[in-house]
């Protein structure tokens, strides 16, 4: 299911592929090593500290600060229809970083390093395929989540 993640998927399979399912449900997940507790984002199955392969997903708030950014005018294959688009690296409050698109609540002129932001899970409504991603929005932005899987 990892092929759900991103506009163009290069990696259809991964040990952390349920990340994409959680994202579709509105949840941003990092990982925690069940053996030593090492927590990180993006999630990874194999612990770089204790080498254990036993991990669990842990939900992140998505809150963070802009670490850096760039507005892209010359796009690679599959992204031509989006130009110009802004990619932002966010330093997450819970640790780790992510790279995502600047959302509509912040303009490309306005974004700046150190700015407080909110990462928001998104589903691409323009295609029948399942495509999930996240955007970087103004701090305080809210969104809906599916019920937790065990209740659904």
């Amino acid at each position: 299911m990892f092929s759900w993640f991103g506009k163009v998927s290069f990696v259809p399979f991964s040990k952390v592929q349920d990340f994409a399912v959680h994202l579709k449900d509105g949840r941003l997940m990092g990982s925690r090593c069940k053996s030593c507790g090492y927590q990180t984002f993006p999630p990874r199955a194999d612990c770089p500290e204790c080498l254990s392969g036993d991990f669990e997903f842990v939900e992140y708030t998505g809150q963070g600060k802009v670490f850096t950014f760039s507005t892209i005018s010359a796009a690679p294959t599959g992204f031509e229809d989006l130009v110009p688009y802004t990619v932002v690296v966010v330093e997450l409050h819970e640790g780790g970083r992510l790279l995502g698109w600047l959302g509509e609540s912040i303009s490309a002129e306005e974004v700046s390093i150190g700015m407080d932001v909110q990462t928001v899970p998104r589903i691409d409504e323009s295609t029948e395929d399942i495509k999930v991603f996240y955007t970087i929005e103004r701090a305080g932005t809210t969104w809906g989540k599916a019920p937790p899987p065990h209740l659904g």
Binding site: F5, G6, K7, V11, S70, A74, A75, L99
Partner: peptide, 17 residues
């Protein structure tokens, strides 16, 4: 390619960051 290229990053964009 797993976490970054899916957002259309480019080589110039990395150095631009």
């Amino acid at each position: 390619v797993q976490w970054e290229s899916v957002f259309g990053t480019t080589f110039p964009a990395y150095y631009a960051m």
